[in-house]
Structure formats: C-alpha cells, structure tokens
C-alpha cells in the first residue's frame, strides 16, 4: 500500500464516506474506489465494478467472483445510533449499542431527563429533535430510535428520520400507540411509514430495560445484515 493510499483512506473515514480498496493479488497493484471516482493502478469497470458496488451495501470484503485475482476491502463508516428521549430505557440502550460498535447520541430538550448523572458516558443534545436531526443528518449508516413516549418529541424525530437515508427507524410504544401515531402521520401526509419499526425491537419476550435494549440492538443488527428478513414477532 502506498502512503498516499493510506492517507486517502484515513481521510475518507474521517469524512464518514464509504471507501473500497481493490488489490490485484499477483502483483499488489491497487485502486481506491469511492462513489465519486477511482484512483490508482487498476481500472475497475463492468462486472467487476458491479460486484464491488453490490458488496458495499452488505459491507462484505473478499475475493471477487467476477475476477478471483482481485480482492476488495470495504471500509464502511462507523455506524451511529441517535436516541430520542433520555428515558430509562435509553440508559441501557446507549451502552448496549456502544458494545455493538455504534457511536451514540441522545437527543432530549428536557434538561431534567438528559443529565450527566443519568448518562455519564453519552453525548447529550438538549435540542428539539427536528433541529438536532437536521444538524446530525442521518446517513445510510445511521439508526434512529424514538423512546420518549411523547408525540411532541417522537413525532418530529420520526418524520425527519423517515425522510432521511437512515437504515433503521424505530419507535417505542404499544400497538395502540403506534396505530394512533400512524393516523397522525397519515393526516400530515408523511410517507415511508412502512419502514418504521414499531413496536421497536425483536420480540424476545423481555420486559426489563436491559432486555428491551438488547432486543432493540438485535433488531438494528438484523436490519443491517439481513434487510429483507421479516420481523421476528411472537
């Protein structure tokens, strides 16, 4: 690997851009591939390029089927989780998500909830969710979960998240709460509500805050790696 390639790789990661390094194993020739172009010794095109793109979506590195002499290493940006509502479940969801490799932000304008005592290790944004999400700009590597139970906080967050590229959008609340939410969204003409995961989390049967947090993280992982898989529900 050339020093310039290493520098370009570090730069892409700092900018949260997905980047692939393609290596020809017989001689070490390399090309760095990004959506906006490619730089290096190899010209990637046709079936090779199509497979590289396809592997990006699944974050899957390996030898190419289209050309076994080429190896692609995808470097996906670090996954992020934005939690709306500094509630009890957020206190266990934040560390559980960090353990699964996520960067976590908690959004809640209510300073009585979002306190350092309750969240010693997580960045707290005392902002209205729609403003916070406009600034954080959820991308295809970001999950958004609304936990506040308060439509004044959850609704604007979910509307913004559903309109974004976020790969996962979930909301806490019973089926009845969710039905009422969908009625409010329909009245406002909100689209893409079919991709809203509610009640949030896999149905593992757990009840404690920690158990619910793990069910939520588990569902986020499932949506990331097996987006087509149906919801696991009892």
């Amino acid at each position: 690997m050339k020093a310039a390639t290493l520098a370009a790789l570090a730069h892409a990661r700092a900018a949260r851009l997905p980047v692939a390094l393609v290596t020809r194993l017989r001689d070490g020739a390399q090309t760095l591939y990004q959506r906006n172009g490619q730089h290096g010794d190899l010209l990637l095109e046709g079936a090779v390029l199509a497979e590289i793109e396809e592997r990006c979506a699944q974050d899957r590195s390996g030898r190419l089927e289209a050309d076994a002499g080429l190896f692609v290493r995808w470097y996906a940006p670090q996954r992020r989780l934005i939690i709306v509502g500094a509630v009890h479940i957020a206190q266990t969801l934040a560390p559980a998500a960090v353990m699964a490799g996520f960067e976590v932000d908690i959004v809640d304008p209510r300073t009585a909830f979002a306190t350092r005592e309750r969240f010693p290790d997580t960045p707290l944004l005392h902002e209205w969710p729609d403003l916070a999400l406009a600034r954080l700009k959820p991308d295809a590597h970001t999950a958004v979960v609304a936990l506040s139970h308060d439509p004044k906080l959850d609704d604007p967050a979910l509307v913004a998240a559903l309109a974004s590229e976020a790969f996962y959008v979930g909301a806490l609340g019973s089926r009845r709460t969710h039905a009422a939410r969908l009625e409010r969204f329909a009245a406002r003409g909100v689209t893409s509500t079919e991709r809203l995961r509610a009640p949030v989390g896999l149905d593992l049967g757990g009840r404690s805050a920690g158990e619910i947090a793990i069910a939520i993280v588990a569902e986020i992982i499932q949506v990331r790696y097996r987006p087509g898989q149906g919801k696991l529900r009892g």
Binding site: M1, L6, A10, R13, Q78, D105, L125
Partner: peptide
C-alpha cells in the same frame, strides 16, 4: 459532538501513521 469511539480499523490506521511518523517501516496483513 458525537463521542469518538475508535473502531478497530481506525485504531489500526492511526497506529500505522504513528509508526511511520517515528520512521518505522510497516507491513499490513
């Protein structure tokens, strides 16, 4: 604002850069 949790790959890239700044030669497996 987001706390930087160094992922494994960023840790490795940063260490390679530190080694190179200290004039060490490096290989990547």
């Amino acid at each position: 604002m987001t706390r930087k949790i160094e992922s494994e790959i960023d840790e490795i890239l940063a260490q390679i850069q530190r080694w190179r700044q200290e004039r060490h030669r490096v290989a990547l497996a």
